[in-house]
Design a protein around this nucleic acid. Structure first.
Length: 235
DNA sequence: TCATTAAATTGTT
DNA sequence: AACAATTTAATGA
């Protein structure tokens, strides 16, 4: 269970990996070149901690491929999951802006490719690039809504509703542009994320499918009605 | 490209 | 938690 705090052997990103980084396309040529040169990618095995609470913040992290989980430990020692982090998502900007330590744990749910932008380059882009600022600002704003939603999810004991809202959060189009209509997540991974047994998640998914909100596929879930998923209530 | 086999994932008890 | 059924991925002709 004692995983290394960081992935070993960081390397330069490939062309396909760069294509999966949504904010790169927004930059000017010069800025994009600088960012590309500084970007590092590494692999995270299931259970690996990408960053943990208390560690100094040196990178702005993004998911190129795979699935991560953002969690924290509350005062009474209970673990509380904030959200899953699918491909295309970037996180840690709030911590970087304040030059603080990370206040949450990021753990890989499956074998994942994680990219990191060094803090110096992150700051330089903030100072000079308007599009980059817009992207970061959008992330901050949207995530604020996510944290509030996460509290409601956690307060909610109805398993079906928990699964529904967690799924809706993962399909967030602004925060997670890489997801699309089909979320690649197994029922086991969803169970880890929501904090339920796989059997219960399976039941919940079947119920949601019967309600016409999603379609269950092998190794993934397709969303039919995102709005209804967000506001799902047990009758 | 197709058939066979292994591995992963899902559905059910 | 365990098991069977189903789907995908891998292998080799």
């Amino acid at each position: 269970m004692t995983a290394p705090s960081l992935r070993q052997r960081a390397r330069a990103p490939s062309a396909t990996e760069l294509a999966g980084i949504p904010w790169l396309a927004l930059l000017s040529d010069a800025d994009r070149q600088e960012a590309t040169a500084a970007l590092q990618v590494g692999m995270a095995e299931p259970g690996d901690r990408v960053c943990r609470t208390g560690a100094p913040s040196n990178y702005w992290f993004g998911v190129v491929d795979g699935l991560l989980k953002m969690s924290n430990v509350s005062l009474d020692g209970h673990q509380i999951t904030y959200t899953g982090i699918p491909p295309g998502a970037w996180f840690g900007e709030g911590t970087l802006l304040k030059r603080e330590v990370y206040r949450y744990n990021i753990e890989a749910l499956r074998k994942s490719t994680v990219a990191g932008l060094p803090i110096e380059v992150f700051w330089r882009l903030l100072e000079r690039s308007i599009p980059f600022n817009r992207f970061v600002m959008m992330q901050l704003n949207e995530r604020l809504g996510q944290f509030i939603a996460a509290r409601e999810i956690d307060r909610n004991n109805q398993p079906d509703a928990r699964v529904a809202r967690s799924l809706a959060a993962l399909f967030h189009p602004v925060l997670y542009p890489g997801v699309g209509q089909l979320l690649r997540i197994t029922q086991q991974e969803l169970a880890w994320l929501v904090g339920l047994s796989r059997q219960r998640v399976n039941q919940a998914l079947i119920a949601l499918q019967a309600a016409g909100l999603i379609r269950i596929e092998y190794g993934g879930v397709r969303v039919i009605d995102l709005a209804a998923l967000r506001s799902y209530q047990v009758m």
